[in-house]
Simulated scan of single mutants.
Amino acid sequence: MRWRLFGQKRTRMSKAFTIIVFTVLTAIFSVSCSRNSDVLVTEVGVSPPSRRSAKTSKAEKFYLQGQAQHVKGNSQAAIASYTKAISLNLEYGAAYRSRGLARFDTGDKQGAIADYNQALRINANDAEAYNNRGNARASLGDNKTAIEDYNEAIRLASNYAEAYNNRGNARAAQGDRKGAIDDYSQAIRLTPNYAIAYNNRGNARAANGDPQGAIADYNEAIRLNPNFAPAYNNRGNARAVNGDKAGALKDLQQAAAIFQRQDNKDLYQQVMNNIQELK
């Protein structure tokens, strides 16, 4: 029986099952770069607009306008606003970094990398730019270079839980399951309510032949975020591997219901296909 799940890499768990786990990166605001299940899904950070004085420069006004547009999901408008901010201040590192996030969201990963490069030219100590460039490189399959970026982000900000989580994703993609588990564990130590890191560590443990450890992590991810559909989906697969067909079916049905409420037709259909296979 083959299971079609979501995301990054097919991992052999037993002779009976081939599982593709849904692995996510993390930051503040969730924006998916693609609905194609073969593309790495990531969450990219967009800081909410902050209050500024009446003396805020014109460039800063365009920058804040771009942030507000990106938060609302209008990435193209955000790119235009960030571009105007940059045209008024060519050394505006934060605007380059934010435009990189918006470009990544539209699927322009090379454009995003070019913007992160500019942000790092202006400020070589910008840990967030290293982390985000790592995300873009990982989404292009360049996990080796992505890990170098995450390493630099962690060197600059040792408590950067997101960078540990993201490096764990890249290590998992390279087959370094122990390194991935170590990174997810460190992310969880730094941020104990990090549901995504629990989910990702569960994926790594499942791939490492530890379905019970995986289920424990998925349990915690669901406790922290009861609407985390991928964790239900992944726990369902781990339960199926563990011989718990009833528990697996219940989890897959819950994942399908959440994806349906979210109007995510692609992932809903994939879970429904899994349910039919399980039956």
Rank of each mutant, 00 (worst) to 15 (best):
A124K: 06
A124G: 10
N125Q: 00
D126T: 13
D126H: 11
D126K: 07
A127G: 01
A127W: 00
E128N: 01
A129S: 09
A129N: 02
A129R: 01
Y130Q: 11
Y130W: 06
N131Y: 09
N131W: 05
N131K: 02
N132M: 15
N132A: 15
R133G: 06
G134H: 04
G134N: 04
G134I: 11
N135S: 13
A136E: 13
A136H: 09
R137V: 15
R137H: 12
A138I: 08
A138C: 10
A138S: 11
S139I: 08
S139Y: 04
S139H: 12
G141V: 14
G141S: 04
N143L: 11
N143F: 13
T145H: 12
T145A: 10
T145F: 10
T145R: 10
A146M: 14
I147A: 07
I147Q: 03
I147F: 06
E148V: 15
E148S: 14
E148G: 14
E148P: 01
E148L: 15
D149V: 08
N151V: 15
N151A: 12
E152F: 11
E152N: 14
E152M: 15
A153L: 04
I154M: 12
I154D: 13
L156H: 05
L156I: 15
L156K: 07
A157I: 12
A157Q: 05
A157N: 12
A157W: 05
S158F: 07
N159D: 08
Y160C: 07
Y160M: 03
A161Q: 10
A161M: 07
A163I: 04
N165L: 03
N165Y: 01
N165S: 11
N165W: 02
N165C: 14
N166P: 04
N166F: 10
R167Y: 01
R167P: 01
G168R: 00
A170R: 02
A170P: 07
A172L: 12
A172T: 06
A173F: 06
Q174I: 09
Q174V: 08
G175C: 08
G175P: 03
G175N: 05
R177H: 03
R177M: 14
A180S: 04
D182V: 09
D183G: 06
Y184I: 10
Y184M: 05
S185E: 01
S185N: 03
Q186G: 05
A187D: 00
A187G: 03
I188Y: 01
I188W: 01
R189W: 00
R189D: 02
R189F: 00
L190M: 08
T191G: 01
T191F: 00
T191H: 00
T191E: 05
P192L: 02
P192I: 04
N193F: 08
N193P: 05
N193C: 08
N193E: 11
Y194S: 03
Y194L: 03
Y194T: 02
A195P: 00
I196R: 07
I196A: 13
I196K: 09
